[in-house]
C-alpha cells in the first residue's frame, strides 16, 4: 500500500483548510452562534422542555448533524472536483496510487474536517447551553460514521458534477432541506401522524435521532434503526465509489 501517497494527499487537503482558516472555522462558529441566539435564546425561551431538556440543548445534536452533513459533502465534493476542474487530476491518476488509497485520502481528509467543525460546533454550543453527553462513545461513533458516509457521498458528487452549479446543488437543495425536515429543530411526535410517517422516509431523521440519543438517551426512532441507516449509507457509498473506479466514470475516458 502506498501509505506515503495517502499521507501526502491527506495533508495537502488538510492544508487547504488551514489556508482558509476564517472560512473553514469561523463560518460554522458564527452560524451556530446565530442559531442559538435565534432558536435558543429568542424563540427557545418560549418553548417548553423537550424530552426533559431545554429547547436550546435539544437542538444541539441536530445542529451538529447539520454542520457535519453539509461540511462532509461540501469538503469531499470540492476536494475531488477541483483537481478535475483545474486538470491536476492527471497527477493523481498517473501516480502509483490505487483507487482505495485515493478514496481513503480524500474522504479521510473531508471527514476529518467535518468532524473538526462538528466538535467546534459542540464547543460553541456548550457556551450557550449546559450540555451532557449520555453515551460519549456512541456519540463519537455516530460522528465518525456519519462524516465518513457523507464524505463518500460528497466524493461521488464531486466525480459526477461537471460544473460548480451542480457541485452546490446537492448540499443546498438536498442535504439542507432533509436536515431541516429531519428533526433538527423539533421532535417527530410534534408532527401530525401523517407527517410523522412521511418523515420516516427521510434518512436524516435516523441520523439526527441516533445522535440525539447519544446525548440524552432518547430519540425519535430506535438507535438500532439509526445505526442501520448509517451502515446502509456507508455500504451504498462504498459500492458507488467502487463502481466509479472500476468503470472509470468521469475519470478515465
Amino acid at each position: 500500500m502506498n501509505l506515503r501517497a495517502v499521507q501526502t494527499i491527506y495533508l495537502f487537503e488538510m492544508s487547504r483548510t488551514f489556508r482558509t482558516l476564517l472560512q473553514s472555522i469561523l463560518a460554522p462558529v458564527l452560524t451556530t452562534s446565530l442559531y442559538f441566539v435565534v432558536f435558543g435564546a429568542a424563540i427557545g425561551a418560549r418553548i417548553p422542555e423537550m424530552g426533559g431538556v431545554s429547547y436550546g440543548a435539544f437542538i444541539v445534536p441536530g445542529l451538529i448533524m447539520l454542520m457535519l452533513l453539509t461540511q462532509s459533502v461540501s469538503n469531499a465534493s470540492f476536494g475531488i472536483y477541483f483537481p478535475r476542474f483545474s486538470g491536476t487530476i492527471y497527477e493523481l491518476l498517473s501516480a502509483p496510487v490505487s483507487s482505495f488509497e485515493l478514496v481513503l485520502a480524500f474522504v479521510g481528509a473531508a471527514a476529518t474536517k467535518a468532524i473538526l467543525i462538528g466538535l467546534i460546533t459542540l464547543a460553541t454550543a456548550s457556551a450557550f447551553v449546559p450540555l451532557e453527553i449520555a453515551h460519549p462513545v456512541w456519540m463519537a461513533a455516530f460522528l465518525v460514521l456519519t462524516a465518513v458516509s457523507f464524505s463518500l457521498l460528497g466524493f461521488i458528487l464531486g466525480i459526477w458534477a461537471d460544473s460548480f452549479e451542480k457541485l452546490g446543488f446537492v448540499p443546498l437543495l438536498v442535504i439542507t432541506p432533509l436536515t431541516f425536515l429531519g428533526g433538527t429543530f423539533y421532535s417527530l411526535d410534534m408532527l401530525p401522524p401523517f407527517w410523522q410517517t412521511v418523515s420516516l422516509v427521510n434518512p436524516v431523521v435516523y441520523l439526527v435521532s441516533g445522535f440525539r440519543w447519544s446525548f440524552y438517551g432518547a430519540g425519535d426512532v430506535s438507535v438500532v434503526a439509526s445505526l442501520a441507516v448509517v451502515a446502509i449509507f456507508l455500504v451504498v457509498g462504498l459500492t458507488a465509489v467502487w463502481w466509479i473506479f472500476r468503470s472509470g466514470y468521469r475519470l478515465k475516458p
Binding site: 502506498n2 501509505l3 506515503r4 501517497a5 499521507q7 501526502t8 494527499i9 495537502f12 497527477e91 493523481l92 501516480a95 502509483p96 496510487v97
Partner: peptide, 10 residues
Amino acid sequence: AFSRGLFGLA
C-alpha cells in the same frame, strides 16, 4: 514535493 510524495517516496 507533493508530486514526489504521490509516488510513495520519502
